[in-house]
Design a protein around this nucleic acid. Sequence first.
DNA 1: AAGTACGTAGACTTGTAGCA
DNA 2: TGCTACAAGTCTACGTACTT
Length: 319
Amino acid sequence: MNDYLQLAALVAVLREGSFERAAAVLHVTPSAISQRIKQLEEAVGGLLVLRGKPCTPTRLGERYYRHALQVELLESDLAEELAPGQRRAKGTNAPPIAIAVNNDSLATWVLPALAAFSDETGLCVKLEVDDEAHTAEWLRTGRVLGAITAEATPVQGCLVEPLGTMRYRATASRAYARRWFPHGVTREALSIAPALLFDRKDALETRFVERVLGFRNVALVAHGIPSTPAFVEATMLGLGWGMNVEPLVIEHLRRGRLVDLVEGKSMTVALYWQHWRLESTTLAALTRALTKQARLHLGKARAGASSSGRRPKAVGAQG
DNA sequence: AAGTACGTAGACTTGTAGCA
DNA sequence: TGCTACAAGTCTACGTACTT
């Protein structure tokens, strides 16, 4: 029996989604993959892979997948330790470091951190973009080694680092505001003025209406715009009002291309970096890069914040 | 001690059946 | 038609016994 080969097969099947593609990646036949998986399943005494399109891990499979990724990461660390600089100088065959990020972080402050990380380690990253409730789930199932999340409670086996808070502004174009809110933001106007929601789970606008404006049970009419840059663009075009992440609209607000729906009212959300509890130099470098950028771009976190939503659940309202 | 032959176990490929 | 599982045969690595 060869545990390494079997774990490699498991990782390849779950990464690629099928036995056939896993076989191509590992340069063996699908049958070899099938046998490795079967042997591993017999050895551990349980089903690891749900055969389907795509193949997905069982609960037990998730545990083994996570274990395999941790081994992979530690091996990469060891290789770097034994031959410092080789990875950076020559590039590497090491698989990319998978992390989950929320859309607004990706659109604002995360990329410079990843550039610094990649420059320091020579490693590539693979981003899984999801809303923050789901980024923690990516971590829980072992598909990523870290996640930018709104969950302050650590996922089992993980550490949490507060990153700071992101400010959201309820914004609209000048023309939109004049057309839909000529007499100010009232309950009646809010119920007919089209809003912008990131996706169906996005509750940030609803929370703003309830918690900041104090209007309960207002059913918003909304466009679904599941892209942060497009969300800003849609606001500029007067498609609706929406909660835009401040760094992306501050200049538009300053130049008067956008206006605050209600002057002085905004929301903040707390973000956290959750990652595997592992003695890994790679993970440490990634954490350093992310927290450094977060310090530069995010506001100071408030103690005791927690949340969920498209974007992270609001933890504070200003105004 | 080093080299060689042989047996064995494990991992593979090929071919094919079964299933959706 | 595409994918996975299974059976049978092949290849390879490794351990052991024997020879030089």
